[in-house]
Structure formats: structure tokens, C-alpha cells
Design a protein around this nucleic acid. Structure first.
Length: 423
RNA sequence: GAGGAUAUAGCGCACCUGGUAGCGCGUCAGAUUGUGGCUCUGAAGGUAGUGGGUUCGAGCCCCACUAUCCUCCCCA
């Protein structure tokens, strides 16, 4: 297929026929976020490459292999956002938002770009709904962020979503743990991938799928025993808060995150309605991020929710999306004077917020009625010389077939609105 | 980045052992020139993903490329 009629690999068009699904999840996520006091933030699609290197960590897979990075005409290294947190954090710092009353609670919708091998639920451009809390150090904040995501799933009617949580400690206790882990694995016979992981990201050794590595990892030290008193206390308090809020979770000591900025609490929501790419929401606490980006230390936490995956889950569960709007009234003119009268009525109806349509395709009456039916028009009205001369027309209820006469003069639009409300 | 499967009309599919493409849905029109949904009739729509090879002849066999799907990896 020619390039000009083929979307780039790993991208997906959201077509008019299915856009109502997006409107549903956007509306619900926004509404839930606002009940938690979150304000929307919109940041640029691209940032300086260094922001992501510093924020996410230079050794992570995303930064090393997956970023869409280019040099612009001013010789700057620019990167298309691979995730949402770094941009939000940067904007908060740049505009002094962290100097306002804390906690600062934000939400955003953003495209994320990662150069990956696409498969179902994994794209090179995907959309995320994300939430950021800054200056909320209490364990209750962790629970609130998790609760926000759980509320979204509940509001959307999702089933089979499970929550896994873990604590990966602060840099101090995690560093100690990493050293022990490296020591433990050093003399073991590992798969090639794990040999690589041992150097780049030892925590990843824990969730290798290779049966042999998995066997070894069963006896590997677990981070839970290594977290310091402060981190351990925080994690216990998070769990108590989750229980108090009635949020079910499983503790997974092998749950780690791909991005370096996480500290302490990490969590993932997984769906049993997806294939291998089953994580629909992931996040945690990143208390070191703001400092890493040059700000005064402020705690941070949040999550990203993959909207394509969310919609895949909803589709597989026949979830109730809010239906697309249908046309309120279709006006079928039979000749030019009727068309001009009809156009004026349509304009008046639209000014009052109605979806009104009139023939633009040059169809005959029969074809116009069929078209009105396809639009799902709730009412139709035929205009010909009788109506133009008499000033009255017949409106037909397309569902019941019932017809009634209306006066085209006076407050026609107001009366029509009254009729609509009556049904 | 690695392995596997697939690629025919807008969508879903068929073409049996190689003889230059059909069906259903959808679209448009007519039957029905002042009223839709049902039915019937007709039409439009395809260089068979792209390029090359074998052959008298390729949608079908072979190779490469591209894309999609699945698994690994990684992640949302």
C-alpha cells in the first residue's frame, strides 16, 4: 500500500464511528479526577531530551531504546513525550506551582510515543490519562491515588481488574537491596537477558519468565525484608489505608517499575480481559523526582492509565459506553424556495443547540427519508410549496410514526424544543 | 531487537489440483416524482499489501520487503 494512504506503524486512527467510546472514558476519568481535587494540565507534546534522561533515568529501556528523539533546526535535542510525568513536573517547577498551596493535584490526557514492536494493546503512539500529586507525603496520599484509579474502573463498569502493590523502598534501602541481589545472582547460571539485567536493572531479574531463572528467583532475597524502618512503616500505612477504603489488593514483592524515579510505593492494575499486555494502569511514588529536576525536595506520586487498553477491556466486556448523539430533526425540502425556508429553520434550531440537518446531497424525497433514518433522526419534516405558502408543516416522529402539524412562524424553535422534552 | 502466523472491494469472507476474481453486509440509484425502517431490481467499487522469480499462464508456487496479529522483551 502506498505510504500516503497508510498510517505509520504502531499508530491507530480513532474513527468517527467509535469516537463516542473515547468521549466516555475522557468524561468519566475527568469527572473522577475532579472529585479528588485534580486540575487539568496540558503540556507540550515534545520536551528537551535531557528532561526524560534525568527524570526517567538514563539506564531505563524507554530512554535507551524507545524514544523518538531528533535534533531540531536550532540544534536542540528534542524528544516526543514517552510518558506524562516528566512534562507535568517540569511545568510545575517552571511556573512555580509547587509554591502554591500544597498538595498540588493534577490530571492530564497526553499522547505517549515509544519506538516499540507493536502488538495488540501496545502502540508507538498511545494515549494516557495521568494523575500527579505533589507535596502529599502521607501514606493516605498513596491510597488516594490508587483509589482514584479504582474509582475510574468502577465508574466505567470494568470487571476482572486486580491491583498489585509493592514497595521498592527509598534509594538508600533499595541500593542495599540491589547489592544483595547482585551478590545472590552473581554465581548463578542465568539466561542471556538476565545477565544483561544484572548490570542494567537488577530488580528486573525477579520477574524473568524463563523457567530456570524463575526457579532461582524463588530463593532470591525479597525487598520486603530490606526496606528501612521508615519505608516499611509507610508501606504498612498505605496498606491499612487501602483496607480502610475497601480497596482489594495483592502484595507482589516482585513488582518493579521500568522507570528510575519511583520510590516506595509502586502499583499496577491488570485486567484479565487482555492478552500479554494486560497492565491498564501503573504508577507509584516518586519522591526524588522534583529534586532530580533541580527543584527543592517535594514528594510526588501518580499514575498513568493506558486509554487504548482501557477501551479494549471495555469492548471485550461489552461495557456501557455513552451512546453517540443522534440527529434531532431532519428537514427534507422539495424545491428551492422550500430549501431556503428549511435552511433558515435549521439555522434557528442550531442556534438553540439542536442537531438539525437539511439535504446537501441532492437526494429525492424517498432517499432523504432513508438518509434521515440512517442518521437516527428523531424527527423529520418535509417542506414543499404547500408549507412555504401556508406557513405550516407536518413534523413526523421517526420512532412512533406519529405526525403533527406545527406553525412555522412565531416561536417554532421553542415549540419544537418543548416537543423534544416531552418524549 | 528475536520467533511464529496472516495479507483478496469500505467491513467480514470464498475461489477446491495454477487458466487474468466472487458472496454477504455496507454505499448509491430505482420500484415508491409529498414521507424512512421490510422486500425486490440494478449500479458503482479490486493493478489480489509491494517488488521480483518460476511457468505458455500466478490471487494460488518460490524469494525479498512492508504492514497486521500472537509470543518473548518491555510497558500503559
Amino acid at each position: 500500500m502506498p505510504l500516503i494512504t497508510q498510517a505509520p506503524k504502531g499508530t491507530k486512527d480513532k474513527l468517527p464511528a467509535e469516537i463516542y467510546k473515547w468521549h466516555t472514558v475522557e468524561k468519566i476519568t475527568k469527572a473522577v479526577a475532579e472529585t479528588y481535587g485534580c486540575k487539568e494540565i496540558r503540556t507540550p507534546t515534545f520536551e528537551h531530551t535531557e528532561l526524560f534522561e534525568r527524570g526517567m533515568g538514563g539506564t531505563t529501556d524507554v530512554v535507551q531504546k524507545e524514544m523518538y528523539t531528533f535534533i531540531d533546526k536550532g540544534e536542540r535535542s528534542i524528544t516526543l513525550k514517552p510518558e506524562g510525568t516528566a512534562g507535568a513536573a517540569r511545568a510545575a517547577l517552571e511556573h512555580g506551582l509547587l509554591g502554591l498551596a500544597l498538595p498540588l493535584k493534577l490530571f492530564y490526557f497526553t499522547s505517549c510515543f515509544r519506538y516499540e514492536a507493536p502488538q495488540s494493546g501496545r502502540l508507538r503512539e498511545h494515549k494516557q490519562f495521568g494523575v500527579e500529586f505533589y507535596g502529599a507525603k502521607k501514606p493516605l496520599a498513596d491510597a488516594e491515588v490508587i483509589s482514584l484509579a479504582a474509582d475510574v474502573f468502577a465508574r466505567l463498569g470494568l470487571r476482572g481488574v486486580r491491583l498489585e502493590i509493592n514497595s521498592i523502598g527509598c534509594p538508600d534501602c533499595r541500593g542495599e537491596y540491589k547489592r544483595e541481589l547482585i551478590g545472590f545472582y552473581a554465581d548463578k547460571d542465568l539466561c542471556n537477558l538476565c545477565k544483561d539485567r544484572l548490570e542494567r536493572n537488577p530488580l528486573r531479574l525477579l520477574d524473568c519468565k524463563n523457567p530456570h531463572c524463575r526457579e532461582i528467583s524463588h530463593s532470591a532475597p525479597v525487598i520486603t525484608r530490606h526496606v528501612c524502618e521508615s519505608c516499611g512503616g509507610h508501606f504498612s500505612a498505605v496498606k491499612s489505608a487501602l483496607s480502610a477504603l475497601g480497596i482489594a489488593y495483592t502484595e507482589n514483592p516482585r513488582l518493579v517499575r521500568g522507570l528510575d524515579y519511583y520510590t516506595n510505593t509502586v502499583f499496577e492494575f491488570k485486567s484479565d480481559s487482555l492478552g500479554a499486555q494486560d497492565t491498564i494502569c501503573a504508577g507509584g511514588r516518586y519522591d526524588g523526582l522534583i529534586e532530580e529536576l533541580g527543584g527543592n525536595p517535594v514528594s510526588g506520586l501518580g499514575f498513568g492509565m493506558g486509554l487504548e487498553r482501557l477501551i479494549l477491556v471495555m469492548q471485550s466486556q461489552d461495557a456501557a459506553f455513552e451512546p453517540a448523539k443522534t440527529c434531532d430533526i431532519y428537514i427534507a425540502p422539495l424545491d428551492t424556495p422550500a430549501e431556503l425556508l428549511g435552511a433558515k429553520l435549521v439555522k434557528n434550531l442550531r442556534e438553540s443547540g439542536f442537531w438539525a440537518e437539511i439535504d446537501l446531497a441532492g437526494r429525492g424525497l424517498n432517499a432523504q427519508m432513508k438518509y434521515a433514518d440512517k442518521l437516527g433522526a428523531r424527527f423529520s419534516m418535509v417542506l414543499g410549496s404547500n408549507e412555504v405558502e401556508g406557513g405550516k408543516a407536518v413534523i413526523k416522529n421517526m420512532q412512533s410514526g406519529e405526525k403533527f402539524e406545527v406553525d412555522l412562524g412565531g416561536d417554532f424553535v421553542g415549540k419544537f424544543g418543548g416537543v423534544l422534552l416531552d418524549i
